[in-house]
Design a protein around this nucleic acid. Sequence first.
RNA 1: GGAGAGGUGUCAGAGUGGUCGAUCGUGCCGCUCUCGAAAAGCGGUAGGCCGCAAGGCCUCGUGGGUUCGACUCCCACCCUCUCCGCCA
Length: 417
Amino acid sequence: MLDIKFIRENKDLIKNNCSARHVKVDIDKLLELDARRRDVLKLAETLRAERKQISKNKPSEQEIARMRTVGDEIKKHEDALMDIEKEYVDLMMAVPNLTHPESPVGGENDFKVIYTNREPRQHDFSPKDHEALMAGLDLIDFERATKVSGAKFYYYKNNQVRLNRALINYAIDTVTAHGYTLIETPDLAKDSILSGIGFNPRGSETQIYSVENSDLSLIGTAEITMGGYHAGEILDLAGGPKKYVALSHCFRTEAGAYGRESKGLYRVHQFTKLEMFIFCKPSESEALHQEILGIEKEICDGLDLDYRVIDIPTGDLGGPAYRKYDLEGWMTTKGRGGEQGGYGEITSCSNCTDYQARRLNIRYRKEDGTTEYVHMLNGTAVNNSRWPLIIAETYQNKDGSIGVPKVLQKYCGLKKL
RNA sequence: GGAGAGGUGUCAGAGUGGUCGAUCGUGCCGCUCUCGAAAAGCGGUAGGCCGCAAGGCCUCGUGGGUUCGACUCCCACCCUCUCCGCCA
C-alpha cells in the first residue's frame, strides 16, 4: 500500500507507474473516493465533537433529546463511510509499489542480465535431466507421491535426503555468518497477514491453499510469516537492521502452470525453503538489497554453479516489489528442442520498501522520537526443490552418478550420489 | 475439550456510567546539583486520522449492542494464565 497523500499529489506519476507495471487500477476512482471519504469524515467528526462537548457534563432534558437525533445522524454518516471505505481500501490495496528508476521497463522477457559468473560448463557427454538422474539412483519417487498426494508432489529417498539437509545446513552457516538471526516459522498463517504481505489468499487466481472453516492458509513462502513477525510493532533499529534467515515449508497451488517448464522438481506444490528477511530504515534498504544479492551469489559460488543475475522488468515485479533480482542457474531441464540447457530461476530477492510495512503497520522509532515505516526486503537462500535439481544436473557424471559439491561433502559425508 | 482468573501506555498496576487518553510507580529523554558518576530534585514523555493552521476526531484485546454519554453495563469472538482431561 502507498501513502494516499503521495497518490493525491502525484496522480500522473502513479498512473504511469501502474501501466509500466501492467497493473490496472482506476486511480481517478480512488481519488474520488478519497475526497468523499474525507468529506463524510469531517461531517461525522464535527457532530461527534458537539455531542462529546454537551455530554461531558450532565445535559438538560432538552439537550438529551437533541443529542438523540445527533446520534442517529452520526450513525448515518458512519454507515456511509463504511461503504466508501470498503471500496477505497480495495483500490488502495490494488495500487502497486513505486518502481526503482533503473528497473528495465517492459514485460516478462525484457529483463536485463547484470551479471554472469561464467560461460555454462558443457558436459562431454549427452546430459540427462534431474528426473532421469534421480530416478536412476533411486533418489526420488514421483509416482507414489502422485498416488498419495497428487501430481507435483514427490518423495525424496536415500542419500538425496542427506544431501538436501546438507544444502540447508550449508546455507544456514553461510547466511548466519553475516549476522542474520536463524528462525523456523509456522507453515500456516492468518489471511490478514497474507494480504498484508501482498498475497490474496482467497481470490479467484490465488496460488495459496486455504484451510476450510478457518482464517488460515498454508504459506507460499516464509516471507509471509516473517513479514507478519513484527506486524503492528514499533521497532528499535538504533542497533542496526533486523536481519533474519527463516526456514519453512512452502505450498503453492501452481494453478495453470503445466508444460515443459514444470517438469520434475522445477515447479512443485510443496518444498522447503531458507529465506532471508530484513526490516530496516529507508536509507539502508538499497544497500541491504545488494547485500542479500551478494549472499545469494556467495552461496552459489560456494557450490560452484553456473549462474547469472537478472534485473526484473517493471511488468513482472508484482505488487509489493520496488526492485527485484533473480538469480538463474544453468539447468539441463531448461533445454528446449535439441538445446542442452537454459537458465532457470533459483533465487529471487526483492526490496519492497515501505509497501508491506504500511499494510502491516510496522514502524521504527527515529532519533527525534517520531515514527516512520520500515523498509522490508526478502530473498531466497536455498530451497530443496530447484537446488537439488540444479546440483544433480550440474554435477552429473557420464555413468549416471551425481557428484556432491565439495562444500557439501563435510555436511553429509558423501562424495557422490 | 471442561472449570476458574484475566487482557489498560516500555513495564508494573489503579480506575465499575459523566472534564479519563486515562492516578501512582517504573523505564526513557532533558535540566539542576557534581570534577564525573550514583543518589536526589525539577520538567517532559502513546499511536493513528482530518486540517495550511488553530484545533478536532479515533484507539483501554477485537467486533457488535445499550445510553445524551462506555475503560466502566450487555452479547459474541480472540488471546494469556492456573487446574483437570486428552494427545504426537
